[in-house]
Design a protein around this nucleic acid. Structure first.
Lengths: 244, 244
DNA sequence: CGTAGTCTTGATGTGGGTCAAGTTGCGTGG
DNA sequence: CCACGCAACTTGACCCACATCAAGACTACG
């Protein structure tokens, strides 16, 4: 468990104009003046895979956007059972802007670059900048919809359907599909998560994930030759396996 | 499946000043002028238990606050498996303010009174009124946290723990406990949901819910003599059963 | 007092968990 | 370049919590 001020954190610098997430992040609707204010406040930070970003219960002094990499949010029961409750990609926002104490752990699933703001000043700017608040509301509503989709998955889908749904989500993301039309044909993608992390995401065990990955391969639904990538010959077939 | 314009919908009238949810709803932070605008736009509507409020996929022309009663949000797979993905109480907001198409069904779990606004004008007012947008963001973040807690429940808790967690949530609500200190001692509360709805909420079957309710009673954790109420002799014991 | 909906209870089945070996991949050092 | 060690993954055997199937029992309402 480590916080932002890591000895191994490396800094980098990006102009907001050249930022890869400029169009998608919380700053998406900001105009030149507003961006200038954010630019003055921001600090980049690199976190390597496996490191904690925020620990549950602790005050988080900083909030911000994911510039690069994948962040997982997890919650645990006192006896150690752990469930992933969020998976954040570039452009997504990390940390409660209004609430000091985090409700869950945030951990870098891959090497991550963050664009961070001190919580207090960011909150003040948020209050004063409707563009920021609008975008954050929109992003939060999207997250809420995703969480509800996930509730359906955990509550009612079989292990095979869960895995197919997860892979489909990655395929859509890899294919850069928006929310209008669906993925078709073949897609290849890297898995940002280990088998164990997939299990934590899907409410299963490592063994069940491994078994069903093998079985989906045997059935020709997917293909892979190392555990960190998949080839999907036909996204339609995978969608059928996903159950909805 | 029916929408807001029900033949059996009954209208009522409440001054915003006398509104029971004035302090908690989306309008909580609004000043006199802002409330006046909302007052001019609003329309109350009563929906009786079991009636649909919004059907998934359909455009919802209206959004608004729950004044009285409980609303459930559900999602279904094509083969009929159904999972509840949200449970909304007085003060909570129904309907996506920015997105036209609903992602799930909203149904009245009990008799419900809604305070409704037409989506378009409400969205315009939202853009122009930071107090509204702030409050809506705060409420959405709270919902997101609740959904994540629920993911842990569906992903990792046993049937007994799920039921205990649900009852504890109701107990906290009945005792009017905020988010600071916890419920203690005895609490009685009505169940707004049938066994079947509890099952849909908890990712279980009716039979499993019934059996564990019986067993929790046999173990002295709860007591009841009809299926729509419970008495909790000691909230602490129930909290232990809930697992966290 | 009959019928329908909801809830309870019992008997049986099964998907996924648990426990226990392997196996594979990869970085490290000889 | 190969041997070693470790972590992640795979595979198998067995088990159990919850689902499924099937009666009953309670309540409400005509």
């Amino acid at each position: 468990m480590q916080s932002f001020a890591l000895p191994n954190a490396r800094f980098s610098h990006i102009r907001c104009g050249a930022c890869p997430i400029r169009e998608r992040a919380v700053c998406a609707y900001c105009d030149g003046d507003e961006i200038a204010k954010l630019d003055a406040m921001k600090a980049y930070r690199d976190v390597e895979a496996g490191r904690d970003i925020i620990a549950a219960g602790e005050d988080c002094a900083q909030v911000g956007s994911i510039v690069k990499g994948v962040v997982k949010l997890t919650k645990s029961l006192p006896d150690g059972r752990t469930q992933m409750v969020g998976l954040l990609f570039p452009g997504d926002f990390v940390g409660h802007p209004t609430r000091a104490a985090a409700e869950f752990d945030a951990t870098a699933a891959t090497d991550v670059t963050l664009c961070l703001f001190k919580r207090g000043p960011f909150e003040a700017l948020l209050r004063a900048t409707p563009h920021l608040e609008q975008r954050l509301l929109e992003m939060t509503l999207t997250e809420l919809d995703a969480a509800r989709e996930w509730l359906l998955l955990l509550g009612r889908k079989t292990a095979r359907e869960r895995i197919a749904s997860f892979l489909l989500m990655l395929a859509r993301r890899a294919a850069g599909v928006g929310r209008e039309r669906d993925v078709v044909g073949a897609v290849e993608c890297d898995l940002p998560l280990s088998r164990g992390e997939m299990a934590a995401y899907l409410g299963l065990t490592i063994e069940t994930v491994s078994r069903h990955m093998t079985r989906l391969r045997a059935d020709g639904v997917i293909d892979f030759d190392n555990a960190r990538a998949v080839r999907i010959p036909d996204a339609g077939t995978l969608a059928v396996e996903a159950g909805d």
